[in-house]
């Protein structure tokens, strides 16, 4: 009797999945259609208005192409400005993110694993996180001087707090019954940490990392908007502003939007791999 019930639910799930998939394809098509229509409307309105402030999207795309992506095949079609500005931006962001995230995870685990350490540091950490990172940019410039070191330190400092606090929070909220199970089966400390505490921390850790991804893009751009920078996408934005080159500014914004989108998608792919069990389990309990 149970077996038949199980088969029945499985069939129901399969049916639901296939319906959902078909529906998914349809909504995706619909969304793209809407997007195309909206871009056409945008194009028409800007052409009719003819305002210098709002160049039509076709012009923005053409500018993006000529400015960055019309290079020779030997450089993967990247132009010199692309190599000079986009790559350093991405490199700084990646390095800053990696450093900040690593520090945040390690420190977060350390703080979260000891109830006492957490109590002592909680207030200070909340304060450090509440400081809008841009307010401290000058301090970084004074300490590290203009250039790469200051920018990296700034990005790391900006993202370390959300990662740290979320990781600590995750490490603190390990299911008590899981810990008791470990104790009953006499697992060693290292085994507990690696097989139980770390996996339990992952969902919250990833929530923090996700925040850090978008934050690192923001602070990367911010650090490049300031006087004294000589390259980067943010620098191109300020340069375009000084030249009143509206199309170039729009191109920079669209590029950053696309980068933000891609980074988020990339992050989601990683998250789905690592946290598959978590999402699946959550969906079932919902």
């Amino acid at each position: 009797m149970k077996a038949t019930a199980e088969v029945a639910t499985r069939a129901a799930i399969a049916r639901r999945d296939s319906v959902a998939r078909r529906k998914g394809v349809r909504t995706a098509a619909f969304r793209w259609l809407v997007l195309v229509v909206l871009i056409l409307v945008w194009e028409t309105v800007t052409r009719v208005l003819g305002s210098a402030f709002f160049p039509p999207p076709s012009m923005i795309v053409v500018r993006m192409y000529t400015m960055w992506f019309s290079g020779p095949p030997s450089t993967l079609f990247l132009t010199d400005p692309a190599i000079e500005h986009i790559l350093p931006s991405l490199g700084r962001m990646a390095a800053g993110f990696a450093g900040g995230a690593l520090a945040g995870v390690v420190l977060g685990l350390a703080v979260g694993l000891s109830a006492r350490a957490y109590d002592y540091l909680d207030g200070v950490l909340q304060f450090l996180r509440a400081i809008p990172p841009p307010a401290l940019i000058t301090v970084f410039l004074v300490v590290f001087g203009f250039g790469l070191k200051a920018q990296l330190a700034f990005i790391m400092f900006s993202i370390v707090w959300p990662v740290l606090l979320n990781t600590a929070d995750g490490a603190r909220s390990v299911e008590p019954l899981h810990l008791q199970t470990c104790q009953v089966f006499r697992l060693t400390r290292a085994e507990r940490l690696r097989r139980v505490i770390l996996p339990s921390t992952l969902p919250k850790m990833f929530a923090g990392l996700r925040l850090a991804v978008s934050l690192s893009l923001i602070v990367m751009v911010f650090s490049e908007l300031l006087p004294g920078t000589t390259d980067g996408i943010g620098f191109q934005l300020t340069f375009a502003k000084s030249q009143s080159d509206l199309t170039a500014m729009w191109a920079g914004i669209v590029l950053l939007g696309v980068l933000g989108y891609l980074l988020n998608e990339l992050f989601l792919v990683v998250e789905r791999r690592v946290l598959g069990w978590h999402h699946a389990a959550q969906q079932l309990t919902e």
Partner: peptide, 29 residues
Amino acid sequence: NLAVVFQDYSRSLFPWMSVADNVALPLRR
């Protein structure tokens, strides 16, 4: 040589491990 089966299986099994890994975990000792 003492084992416990808790009432709340949903919270005593480790959701990130396969069934086999869950069963095999205590054997590490």
